[in-house]
Nucleic acid binder design. Structure first.
Lengths: 182, 182
DNA sequence: GTCTATAGAACGATAGAC
DNA sequence: GTCTATCGTTCTATAGAC
């Protein structure tokens, strides 16, 4: 069995999720990750090619979870109700204690553009745009999609920097009032 | 004249502005800053207490420039035209080659909350909110102000991450269509 | 002399890689 | 655990301006 092997990998991904998101990627050293995971340093390099790959894997886990959320939301038939539910989830997240904004846009500031992590970030925004486009029944290049992306990023960024969850509500109001909903 | 004195400091602030904004703060080492500025390492520590203070000074220069922009915009009497002009400037900036999003929200990801730089970031958002509140003729805690902050952050963040200036235009459309303008 | 500039060595700490 | 590289910082030593 490869129980130990997968366990070390899982513990590392768990520790990475907590530390990279809470303290930042560059500010979090390898030593801190393995200490928090409770594994040996060699276990990291057995499971990942290096820190860059660990960062990419951390974001991939986030992306998977995001996909599941989108799949759940797609079960809502009414487009307007679906978008409402999307921003309701955002508001709930922002109100939670560990909230620190969008993990992908946060990471985008810290990773360099040719990093494997950057590909995951781009993929996240592609899926976000695709979700909005499907819901609005328009092309992904549509202005309405762009407005929703602006509202998402604005909500996450503002609520995070100013530590004020009510800004997500402001973004939600903006979405309700905007032309894209007609 | 104290040409030499102010020159080293100015060169350092110039180099810091370029490198911190383009490559990120943590990714930019002291050695790279002084090499780009063409000054000695001691000159940095003669003019600034350390890297943290240099980062704070870099953001303070940005804040000063932002203040001048706001002062110019305040000369526009009509509130709606003033906000239009604000987002027009954003669009122009985003279309320029060196655009990399809001320097303050970018820095917020990299500096720790008790850093001197963080105080400058908070001050930036205070002045941005104050500008919007004055223009709308409402309190700084008003929902309309929050919506404008969301649009600003959403525009800067989206256009930067996705490298698509048209997202600033989408944010502008959102502002035009929103309830805050009635 | 005093001040600020220069170049560069060297410090301890910590990074990522193996 | 050990390697090497680099981080931010401090210090030595010297040159030029007022």
């Amino acid at each position: 069995m490869t129980v130990t092997r997968s366990s070390a990998r899982a513990k590392l991904l768990d520790a990475a999720a907590t530390l990279f998101y809470r303290d930042g990627i560059t500010a979090t050293g390898i030593d801190r990750v393995i200490a928090h995971a409770g594994v040996a340093k060699a276990s990291l390099y057995n499971n990942f090619a290096g820190k860059d790959e660990l960062v990419a894997a951390y974001l991939s886990v986030r992306l998977e979870r995001f996909d599941q959320t989108l799949a759940t939301l797609m079960e809502i038939a009414d487009p307007l109700a679906r978008i409402d539910a999307f921003f309701d989830r955002l508001e709930a997240n922002a109100a939670s204690g560990q909230f620190g904004g969008c993990p992908f846009s946060r990471a985008a500031v810290e990773v360099n553009p040719d990093s494997p992590a950057h590909r995951v970030i781009v993929e996240f925004y592609r899926r976000l745009g695709s979700f909005f486009a499907q819901t609005l029944g328009v092309d992904i290049e549509d202005a309405g999609v762009k407005q929703l992306i602006v509202c998402y990023n604005g909500a996450m960024s503002s609520a995070s920097v100013l530590k004020d969850p009510s800004l997500v509500g402001a973004a939600h109001d903006l979405v309700r009032a905007s032309t894209m909903r007609r």
